[in-house]
Amino acid sequence: MALWDRVWQTGKSMVVGHAITMREMLHKPVTVRYPEEKPPFERGSRSVPVLKVNEESGRLNCVSCGLCERACPPSCIEITQAMDEKGRKKPWPETFQLDLSHCMVCNLCVEACPFDALEMADVVELGSYQVQDLILQKGQLAEIWKTSRALRVAGGERL
């Protein structure tokens, strides 16, 4: 009895399992072959903070106030204020560095920014063989913003 029961159970398991996998064969595959075929990003998905460029003036929105620097938990942002020859502060950053190797993509810097100067990009392929290459300067950050923008506009309003 016990033996027959086990034979019956095993047979049933095989039939059920095969039925499920066979049925799946009739469906379209769900796999995306990633490097060749890139799935679209969801609206609002984020990778790293980048600097926004003002459409009209072509300058950065950033005024170098340093709030994002303070809000960043792993302190991966470093800003130095621009100065003119007389030592007066100018409302843009002399340097703006972002250490990608420490960034944890938490969005706190964007929320801290009162000037709408930062935005989370949706560019993820930023890998590199050298750690130094992961420190992005303000020019690079603005470049990434430009490439990520197309995706964002296509996806509708930003979150």
Binding site: G17, I20, T21, E24, V30, F41, E42, R43, G44, S45, R46, M104, V105, C106, N107, L108, M120, L159
Partner: peptide
């Protein structure tokens, strides 16, 4: 095989998470 089926739904669920929070695993 169960692993493949599990990941089918997991991807779907993570896409839902991504739509809501902006990230797939570490949502912040």
């Amino acid at each position: 095989s169960p692993f493949m089926y599990a990941f089918r739904e997991r991807e779907w669920g993570y896409t839902l998470m991504e739509k809501a929070t902006g990230a797939r695993m570490l949502y912040a």
